[in-house]
Every structure is written in C-alpha cells, then in structure tokens.
C-alpha cells in the first residue's frame, strides 16, 4: 500500500511550512463547510482546483481520490431533488423534482469537492512525519499524536499480516460467498489479526524501551523559521476565507445565488 502518494514533489506548495499549510487550510474549509447557496461553494471549488494545479500533483491520481467522495454524493443526487420542497421541474411517477432540490445537491457537490481538493493540495503534500511534528507544534495532545503516528506506521505491517493470512486461506481453496462458512472464516481472520497486533505491539514496546523511549521522538529535522513565502501564502488564504465570509453574509444584498 502506497500511502504518501502526494507527499513527494517539487512545487511552491510542497515547499511551504507544514504548520502554515495546516493553519491556512482550516479557516478556509470551515467557511466552505458551513456555506450555503452556490456562489461561495463555486469560488471555493476554483480555489481548490488552483491549489491542486499549483502543487503540480498527478491529476489522474487526484481524480481517483475524488471518486469515493462523489459516490456518497451521487446517492444524495437520487434523493435530494425529490425531497426538497419547491418549484417542480419534472416528474417521474409519483416523484417531483424541484429546482431547489437540484440546487441543494449541486451546492453539496461543489462544497465537498472544494474541501477535498484543497485538503489534498495542502495536507496530502506533507510527509506524515512532518505532519505529526506540525500537529505537536499546534498543541494537539501528545498521546493522540503518538497514537496517530504509530497507527499510520503499522498499517503496512498489519496489511502484510493480513495478506499472508488471506493467501493461506486462498491456498486452501477459500472462495468468499454468502454463507456462514465465509463469515466464520473472516471472523477467525480478524481474530488472528487482533492477536498478531497485540504480539507486534509488545515487541515494539519492548524494543522502544531498550532504546530509551520516553514518549517522545528526538528529532534532527526541526522546523526552520518561517520564510516570506509562508507569510504571503498564509495571508492570502486568510484573505480568501475572509472574502468568502463577506460573500456569504452579503449575498442577500447583492442577490447572488
């Protein structure tokens, strides 16, 4: 499993300080998440697309990532046009689609994709170790950060365990189907994964104690001071968020959708 797909690369966004990227992302996604109507979500989507373009990511890989997000939203597209009250546009059988419903579904689609794209561009481009380090600088509880890091680190190990166990089942002609045998076999597989995870964790903890671990990771690669481009980017993103707030509040005056 390749997990840090976007973390490597040379671009303006990759070179920014991780703390700045986190701090400039959060106001933006919060504003987008609670926005209504179409104007703010549309502009936010444009911002998201541009952030992805500026970080020069593999666009095909980014589009693949958008797929699971839009699957849930596609499900809502089948529901919302018929369940929001308003002016009818067309009818299928007993159901009437309303323009309000379609606008609502469109709003959600724009918002979700805007948030996901900007998250990929700003957090996806941070290697996990630096992300964890930045989270500690931003005062996220130490235990939680350590939990996050260890969990991330051992996903690939446990995935190897899982593949080994599953291959052993396949060698014995296991074919998943809808029957009790399949479910029981999966249950035993999960039970074994849990047991192995305990065994791993004991060894890991003892090995860490041997090396003098006291709940902290000593670092050589500290964050250096912030540069001018970090400040410029931070101010720019805060400015964008402020503009979106103004638009959101002012759209009733200016009669924007």
């Amino acid at each position: 499993m390749h997990l840090e797909e976007f973390a490597e690369g040379k671009s303006l966004i990759h070179s920014l300080d991780p703390r700045i990227k986190l701090l400039s992302l959060f106001p933006f996604i919060v504003v987008v998440a609670i926005a209504k109507g179409l104007t703010v979500p549309f502009i936010a989507l444009m911002v998201g697309v541009n952030l992805v373009l500026f970080s020069r990511l593999n666009l095909k890989a980014v589009l693949t990532r958008l797929f699971p997000v839009n699957l849930f939203i596609l499900f809502l597209w089948f529901m919302l046009p018929f369940s929001v009250k308003g002016e009818g546009i067309f009818t299928i059988g007993p159901l009437t689609a309303t323009s309000e419903g379609i606008f609502y579904a469109l709003t959600i689609t724009l918002k979700a994709n805007a948030i996901v794209l900007s998250t990929i561009a700003l957090i996806g481009t941070i290697p996990i170790f630096r992300l964890v380090h930045a989270l500690r600088h931003l005062k996220v509880p130490e235990k939680l950060v350590n939990l996050f890091f260890f969990c991330y680190r051992y996903i690939s190990v446990l995935h190897e365990d899982y593949s080994a166990l599953y291959n052993a089942m396949k060698v014995r002609a296991f074919k998943p189907a809808t029957n009790v045998h399949t479910y029981r076999s999966y249950a035993y597989l999960i039970g074994m994964l849990v047991v192995r995870s305990y065994d791993h964790s004991e060894k890991i903890y003892q090995a860490m104690l041997c090396r003098g671990f006291r709940g902290r990771f000593p670092l050589l690669d500290h964050f250096t001071g912030l540069t001018r481009k970090d400040f410029v980017f931070f101010i720019f993103m805060i400015f964008v968020a402020a503009c979106l707030v103004t638009l959101e509040v002012g759209k009733y005056f200016w009669r924007l959708p």
Partner: peptide
Amino acid sequence: PEVAVLTS
C-alpha cells in the same frame, strides 16, 4: 503502542 497497532 498496543492501542495504535490494534487500530491499524
């Protein structure tokens, strides 16, 4: 470590 590996 135990909780983290169990989570993975």
